[in-house]
Design a binder for these strands. Sequence first.
DNA 1: TTGTAGGCGTTATCAC
DNA 2: GTGATAACGCCTACAA
Lengths: 353, 353
Amino acid sequence: MARATISDVAAAAGVSQATVSRALRGSTNVSPATRAKVEQAAESLNFTLSKSASTLASGRTMRVLLLVSGPLNTWFNASVLQGVYNVLAPEGYDVIPSFVLNRSQLDRFFRNLPRDRNADAIIITSFKFDTTLHDQLSALGMPVVGLNSPSTAGFDASIGIDNASAIASGVHLLRSLGHQRIAFVHNYIPHDMVYGTSTRAAAFRAAAADAGYAEHDAIMIEADQRDAATATPGTTEASATTAAHIVARLLSCNRHPTGIMGETDEFTIPVYKELLRQHIAAPRDFSIMGFDDAPISRALDLTTLHQDPAALGSAAARKVLALLRGETIRHVHALVPATLVLRDTTGRAPAGR
Amino acid sequence: MARATISDVAAAAGVSQATVSRALRGSTNVSPATRAKVEQAAESLNFTLSKSASTLASGRTMRVLLLVSGPLNTWFNASVLQGVYNVLAPEGYDVIPSFVLNRSQLDRFFRNLPRDRNADAIIITSFKFDTTLHDQLSALGMPVVGLNSPSTAGFDASIGIDNASAIASGVHLLRSLGHQRIAFVHNYIPHDMVYGTSTRAAAFRAAAADAGYAEHDAIMIEADQRDAATATPGTTEASATTAAHIVARLLSCNRHPTGIMGETDEFTIPVYKELLRQHIAAPRDFSIMGFDDAPISRALDLTTLHQDPAALGSAAARKVLALLRGETIRHVHALVPATLVLRDTTGRAPAGR
DNA sequence: TTGTAGGCGTTATCAC
DNA sequence: GTGATAACGCCTACAA
């Protein structure tokens, strides 16, 4: 059976193609009677509108791109996708995920994007901002919404986690638990890096100073570049080797820190495990907390800062919708808080320190 | 600047539209010289072919659907997506993920699919097979490849994990470690269920019998339906309540099992944690193993059966490609093994049992 | 190897 | 409220 076209339906229903189109899209002025006739005809012919043809004629693709940094099978990225999908799918939009692992892939993505301008809007997550990116974004010619981007420039709207206040609340916790020296452990940050967690490192520095920590009482420990190089790019997870190196540096400090914050749960957990392996226990000997509240932190009872990437994705998608409809958005650039989740890895600082 | 069309490029390059089309698609007979001219003209006009127009004219959409059961932000589903993407994206295909949580959503999906026949093929993961589904699949009119489906019927090709032999190797492990009584713990399986892990339960029964376990020495413990109902559908994770109930049933057995296998890592871990909470330690008092080798099992040093969902996704995508190109596939329905990963939660059965 | 011309199946703009 | 009709931007025989 060759596929029925709109004119077949028109013939069957005894109306014009235009009317069929109107009726089937539910929208414009069509009398209830006609609509019923048309719908019935379409039904019996097993007819449905062709997306491609509609797209061509209308200029609307009903597709939105989701560009993430790092693999899609990351807790964060997958959850964002889920959230975006949840609000866009019911509206009839397809969401097309893409990802890039490094700067050159990112550039290639933007270079090829117009090649198949086949989306109405794009959501971009966790990219570090730079002027090149900015230019690329504005050249896109479609609504661009950012998700967890360090800067809002170049985006028509954005949503993100309030890293600064979240990190601050973590620092305050450690301080009130009596930890005299604290540390922030994080992955190696390449100079051409595309992911944006470096915001947290900066936030830690600021929050520590703010909370009264002297500079040498709030130290930063970054993963070794060589360790990072052997890992999958874009992964936030620390390898066992990376973790071992970090712990070595941590413990070899003169009067080592007892309060530790990690950039993400996934990065923090290997460090935590390595400490345990050294027979240094939390919260007896030290306190440690992650960031994200990913399932893995729950499994290990790790204290952490909760964020909800699916909610971020949904919020971003809602902004896309608003942009597409030309509605005015209340908070063009919104920031949502991350909240502290107390579990088993934080407690009063060991006495005598 | 209004978008350049193919005829603008044709004019600029001094050739016909047809030639531009041919040249830009890299394909058919075009002299190198002409091709260069065309490419340069396109470049300078910032022109690219419109996907929608190509689709309409050619009938090929360059899109493939990925339908998964359960949320996209599951380790398994997200990894499958990643794997599918990895092979399809370089070939110019967009992959459009969709998911359904239950039977009615699945039916709705199939009912609406022809409504926007806008894909060249579809990959379907982890769905329980039934005759209705079979009919729906064959009515699709496009290549359908199954991933981890209990049956191959209705699919043009399929790829999956060899649950039977994997589970068998787990049972053999427990047996050789001296566990006299073993148990399989798994989530509640709704009768209209769409996900396919029930295969593992059946495999456990068979493998246990095969290994010489009497029926009452190899017990099945299924999560309570009411517990499952309160959880997110499609999640393979056990809630704390579910886990507590399961452990209660486990320990209240006369001579309780000391060797435990779980349907997935995510489901197994809460059970494991609950056992620890009862001061019953692995591998001293019992052995427990998961299935999947998800990152979370590594974090908890859980013995498990390794599978690689991204590889499954890639394999499925390759079959899609072959189908689309009319190539003959070597193994239309392929099964890949899952391999045992020994970690810290399995060991010799406690003496005197 | 390259050009010509007729679709592909809708949507949108007008009239009526 | 409904009907013509001209786009929409490319692909693909077929001819040259």
